[in-house]
C-alpha cells in the first residue's frame, strides 16, 4: 500500500482564533483512487481542502504529498508539486477568455522567461505556441473549444463549472481536488460530468478527491468515502460500509436520508 500512497494527512487540524474548525483528520489517498469527502454543511470539508492546497496552514498535524511534507507551503508551490483544485463558488478569471483561463494554469510547465517575452525571442513564440496548443486540447476534452475566445463570465453556469475543471487539469496535477463540481447542475448534466470525470481520471492517470452533496453521485462513483462531521472524521470506508454506518446516519438525520 505504501508504494501506492500519494497523499497522507496525519492528525491534521486547524484552529481559527479559539474555534477548532477541523481536528485530528487522518486520511490517505492511494494513486489512481477516486475518493469522496462528504458531510453535512459546515462540517469542515472545504476547510480540509484549503489545508491540503496550502490556502490555510494547518495548526496541527502533518500533510505529506508524494513523499514530501507540504505543510506551510504556499498554494502555488503545492500546485507545482501536483495538487490542483476547483472552487465551490466558481472562481474563474472572469474577464479573460476561456482559452486564457486554461493558459494561466498551463503556465507551470512553460520555460520561457520574462526577458524572452519582452524581447520576442524565438523561445517565447515556441513556448506560447505550445501552451496554446495544449490548452486547446484541454478545452476539447470538455467540449469548450468552440467557446475559446468567449469571456469566461459569458459562459453558461454548467460550462463555467466544466471550465474550472479544465483549468485545474491544465496545471497538470497528480491529484485533483473537486469542490462540489456538480453543484447547481441538473441530473443530466451531473451524469455527463461524472462520465467526464471518470474519463479524465483514466486518461491522465489522476487521483481524485471529491466533495459532493449529491449522495447518489458519491455512492455511485467513489471507491472510498470519508465522512466529516463537526470538523472530525466520523467514518471512512466503501460506499456500502458508509451507507450502513450508524454514525453517518445520525449525522445526516434531518438532512437527506442515506439510501
Amino acid at each position: 500500500m505504501t508504494a501506492n500512497l500519494l497523499l497522507e494527512a496525519e492528525n491534521v487540524g486547524i484552529q481559527f482564533g479559539g474555534l477548532k474548525a477541523v481536528q485530528s483528520v487522518n486520511m490517505h489517498l492511494n494513486k489512481g483512487e477516486l475518493i469522496g469527502l462528504i458531510g453535512p454543511n459546515g462540517a469542515g470539508k472545504t476547510t480540509t481542502f484549503n489545508m491540503l492546497t496550502g490556502v490555510y496552514e494547518p495548526t496541527e498535524g502533518i500533510i505529506t504529498f508524494d513523499g514530501k511534507k507540504i505543510n506551510g507551503l504556499k498554494p502555488y508551490q503545492v500546485t507545482k508539486l501536483g495538487i490542483s483544485r476547483t472552487f465551490q463558488n466558481i472562481r474563474l478569471f472572469k474577464d479573460l477568455s476561456v482559452l486564457d483561463n486554461v493558459k494561466v494554469a498551463n503556465h507551470n510547465k512553460a520555460k520561457h522567461g520574462i526577458f524572452a517575452s519582452i524581447l520576442r525571442l524565438p523561445s517565447h513564440f515556441a513556448g506560447e505556441a505550445k501552451m496554446e496548443e495544449e490548452s486547446i486540447e484541454f478545452l476539447k476534452i470538455f467540449g469548450l473549444d468552440i467557446y475559446k475566445d468567449e469571456m469566461a463570465k459569458n459562459l453558461p453556469y454548467g460550462m463555467q463549472r466544466r471550465l474550472e475543471i479544465a483549468r485545474a487539469l491544465a496545471a497538470k496535477p497528480k491529484l485533483l481536488l473537486l469542490d462540489e463540481p456538480a453543484a447547481g447542475m441538473n441530473p443530466q448534466e451531473t451524469h455527463d460530468l461524472m462520465e467526464l470525470i471518470a474519463f479524465i481520471r483514466k486518461e491522465f492517470d489522476l487521483t481524485i478527491l471529491l466533495i459532493e452533496h449529491d449522495m447518489h453521485l458519491v455512492m455511485g462513483v467513489c471507491e472510498r468515502i470519508y465522512v466529516l462531521d463537526h470538523g472530525q472524521l466520523i467514518a471512512d470506508g466503501t460506499p456500502q460500509e458508509i451507507r450502513s454506518n450508524p454514525k453517518v446516519i445520525e449525522a445526516y438525520l434531518g438532512e437527506e436520508v442515506v439510501e
Binding site: 490556502v55 500546485t79 490542483s84 472552487f87 472562481r91 478569471f93 472572469k94 486564457d100 493558459k103 494554469a105
Partner: peptide
C-alpha cells in the same frame, strides 16, 4: 497572463500555480 489572473482573482491565480 499571470499578472492579469492576479487582478481577476488572486486566490484562484495562486491555486493555479501563479507565484
Amino acid at each position: 497572463r499571470g499578472c492579469i489572473s492576479i487582478r481577476e482573482d488572486e486566490i484562484a491565480a495562486d491555486a493555479m500555480g501563479i507565484n
